[in-house]
Design a protein around this nucleic acid. Structure first.
Length: 110
DNA sequence: TCAATGACCTGCC
DNA sequence: GGGCAGGCCATTG
């Protein structure tokens, strides 16, 4: 285990770089890592980041749907955290996802 | 060690 | 335009 996997470490790092009141998607992070088709691994990294200072609640799928909400301690924890940051979430889905969307490829401009 | 799963995305029919 | 299947990489049983 350890942090030998750059993919996991990178995914967690990018998730940690997500600014306040902003959200990102697995595919965007996966693409930033170089593998847009490895979005699933990003979810795994979030799961492994549980317990760390990684705002996994700011990471959602391409549709802005809180797919990983069930993996949280509480099904409302993720939504509450997002609402606390000023993100409008309805039915486990981000409303202004297009505006709140934070793309590491664009913001970080690699 | 092998096989299956998993918080997804893209492409094809 | 909508639905289905495949693929990716790492972890777990």
């Amino acid at each position: 285990m350890e942090e030998k996997s750059n993919f996991f470490k990178n995914a967690q790092d990018v998730a940690r770089l997500i600014p306040f009141g902003r959200v990102s998607s697995y595919g965007a992070i996966a693409k930033y890592l170089g593998s847009s088709n490895s979005a699933r691994m990003v979810g795994w990294a979030m799961n492994a980041s549980k317990g760390m200072n990684v705002p996994a609640h700011r990471v959602v799928n391409r549709k802005g749907l809180l797919t990983g909400i069930k993996h949280f301690s509480s099904p409302t924890e993720m939504q509450l955290l997002l609402e606390k940051e000023g993100v409008n979430v309805h039915a486990h889905q981000i409303q202004n996802f297009d505006e709140l969307f934070w793309d590491p490829n664009v913001e970080l401009e690699l």
